[in-house]
Design a protein around this nucleic acid. Structure first.
Lengths: 152, 152
DNA sequence: ATTGGTGCAAAACCTTTGCAGGGCA
DNA sequence: TGCCCTGCAAAGGTTTTGCACCAAT
């Protein structure tokens, strides 16, 4: 945790940005809720618990900044708000997402399943891939279990 | 063209909705610009050329309705507006998109490249896929050609 | 008469921006 | 002092909603 904050601090400083208290509080919230794909508003409310005087605009500016530095990814799942996904710098590509249409949960696949397809795009479509996005909508394993239990 | 309108008319009537002149004009614009992933505003302006008294709210309502009937797909490419993609009912899955980061064009792949991955999700993740979304960002073949020509 | 559909304007919503002030080099 | 950063409020842009009216059953 502290190591990851330190790393982000360095990424900021490398471009002459500071890790202010507000920015650090925001990053901590993101780290503590890494699985959750929070919206700006949700981040704002969580940060406010620890740092009540922060303004919403600051959260937006921080998210925007971290997004530009590729510390996190701005995503859009079609529910009208932007959501943010911390990047594992081990992989420079997006995670794949498993979005449950029943309970709304979003799970992730961290491996890259698309390398063969990207080669094919290059060969057959003369398209040079720099990034990708792969989301599946469906029924997650938890809801599937629940449905099975109920059916008995 | 007329056949496709007729089909959409039937899809509407099956749920007791009418193909009003405004809706028909909207559908025609979508059919005529099928490749273009228009935004609501763009559809509105194109419809207005033929049907000047139409209101923007009607276009939004029509797009929403057609979206619910799965006649078209509401997409979000991250540019702040919803874009609409007419569905080929031959495939009940989305197209895959090739989004050019240089010129902003969006090309489509009509085949489904994900069937093997969906089987794997079912086996390994106990996740039942009902739909998916696959977008690639990169350099399209046109921009790649241009860059090559310039490099000479 | 009832129902669904429309146009207009207002509202709602998320996000960005302008600006005056604050903190730190 | 100069510069980045902040909070607040206002503005911006997209989408939805309320309402009165219209058309067709």
């Amino acid at each position: 945790m502290e190591a990851r904050i330190e790393k982000i601090k360095q990424q900021l400083q490398a471009q002459a940005f500071k890790l202010t208290p507000q920015r650090e509080a925001t990053v901590r919230v993101l780290l503590e809720n890494e699985e959750d794909h929070l919206s700006a508003e949700e981040v704002f409310m969580l940060v406010k618990d620890k740092f009540p005087e922060i303004g919403l605009a600051t959260v937006y500016r921080t998210l925007e900044l971290l997004s530009e530095l590729h510390v996190l990814e701005k995503m859009n799942f079609g529910d009208g708000v932007a959501r943010y996904d911390l990047r594992n710098d081990s992989t420079h590509h997006h995670h794949h997402h498993l979005i449950c249409v029943q309970c709304g949960s979003v799970d992730e696949i961290l491996e890259d399943w698309l390398a063969p397809l990207e080669e094919r795009l290059d060969r057959e479509f003369q398209f040079t891939v720099v990034d990708h996005r792969l989301d599946f909508q469906g029924i997650c394993h938890r809801c599937r279990e629940k449905a099975k239990a109920k059916a008995k």
